[in-house]
């Protein structure tokens, strides 16, 4: 008997979404290991645990839609279609990386994909995405801009100013709060006087919606509504995704600020990838073996990207002084 697909995405789309989320998870889990081994220079902020949000939002976007990402940007990059091998090379500081080794983890960008850059400055994406949305308004093709920021960066003036500007100019912007409960090591309860991001949006006349950011379908549906609204000229809005962070603020963070058992609970009960997998298999439209096959293919891809990254040459002295005008 033909099983009816109960979901608002086709089977193929669902497989793609699962693959994308698995790719992000595997990419980050692998970085966690390789960073621990000392293979990776600098520092990295991992997106693992938050995949459903990136995938749920990005599924509605095209290359012409711009996103402004954060320091925790690998997931946004992958979901927006940035090449995984290029990303891995970039994180290893190699030539041929997304930014030829000049940006690193916190600055991966691919404007051809509408990815305006991960950003090392918290809250800096707000104004930038207003500009992207303004440009979109001039182009008049219904493109939108998505600004990702965390519950921590929501306290930056830039974000609040951007909500005001987006409201004043009726820009097609969606402010996405990735609320994982921690601003670095500081809990949301401490650092946020009124802990509701929907309330802040309301202060600027923007409608807001809060969803479970670990449920792909919840994010997908809400994101679909806010993005459609923006495309049709309905203006800016805010989407708060409540989510969990699998790893520390950055790699090497001992996370002693977490409650005992918190991380175990997160992995056991708030694993967005497992939640999606279970939803798909329970509906009977995708089998566990299909998912396992994807898992294996993703493993191969990540392994390949690490190999490529390790084998790639470092940039040279000549590269030091290109891509910027040098006067003397």
């Amino acid at each position: 008997m033909q099983v009816q697909n109960p979901f608002p995405l086709s089977r193929d789309e669902l497989l793609t979404v699962y693959r994308q989320m698995r790719t992000i998870r595997e990419f980050e889990e692998r970085l966690h290991i390789d960073f621990g081994r000392g293979d990776i220079p600098g520092f990295v902020h991992l997106y693992a645990g938050e995949e459903a949000t990136a995938a749920g939002i990005m599924h509605h976007l095209n290359d012409g839609d711009r996103i402004a990402s954060t320091h925790r940007g690998h997931g946004h990059c992958i979901a927006k279609g940035v090449d995984v091998v290029g990303m891995m090379k970039e994180i290893y500081g190699k030539k041929g990386g997304s930014c030829n080794g000049k940006g690193g983890s916190m600055h991966i960008a691919d404007l051809s994909r509408g990815m305006m850059g991960a950003n090392g400055i918290l809250g800096a994406g707000g104004p930038l995405i207003c500009g992207a949305a303004l440009a979109a308004k001039y182009r008049n093709k219904g493109e939108v801009g998505i600004c990702f920021f965390g519950d921590g960066a929501s306290n930056q003036g830039t974000i609040l100013e951007s909500m005001n500007l987006a409201g004043v100019w009726n820009l097609p912007v969606i402010f996405v709060v990735e609320n994982n409960g921690y601003a670095e090591s500081t809990s949301r309860d401490y650092g946020t006087a009124v802990d509701s991001y929907v309330d802040r949006a309301a202060g600027f006349g923007l409608p807001g919606v809060t969803v479970d950011g670990t449920d792909f379908f919840a994010v997908h549906e809400a994101a679909g509504a806010v993005i459609k609204r923006a495309r049709e000229g309905g203006g800016p809005s805010l989407l708060e995704c409540k989510m969990v962070r699998y790893f520390g603020h950055f790699e090497g963070d001992a996370q002693t600020y977490r409650a005992p058992g918190e991380l175990d609970d997160i992995r056991a009960n708030h694993n967005c990838l497992k939640i999606l997998g279970d939803q798909l298999t329970a509906a009977g439209i995708i089998s566990q073996s299909e998912l396992t096959k994807i898992d294996e293919e993703v493993m191969v891809l990540i392994e390949h990207s690490v190999k490529e990254a390790k084998a790639a040459p470092f940039p040279t002295l000549a590269d030091l002084t290109t891509d910027v005008y040098i006067n003397y």
Partner: peptide, 25 residues
């Protein structure tokens, strides 16, 4: 020609974002 709110971070940043997206603000 666009007037802006008194909000330098937002509109200077928006000019920069628009520049990165094909405008010459």
């Amino acid at each position: 020609m666009m007037d802006t709110p008194l909000s330098e971070s937002a509109y200077i940043g928006a000019a920069i974002g628009a520049a990165a997206c094909g405008m010459r603000p």
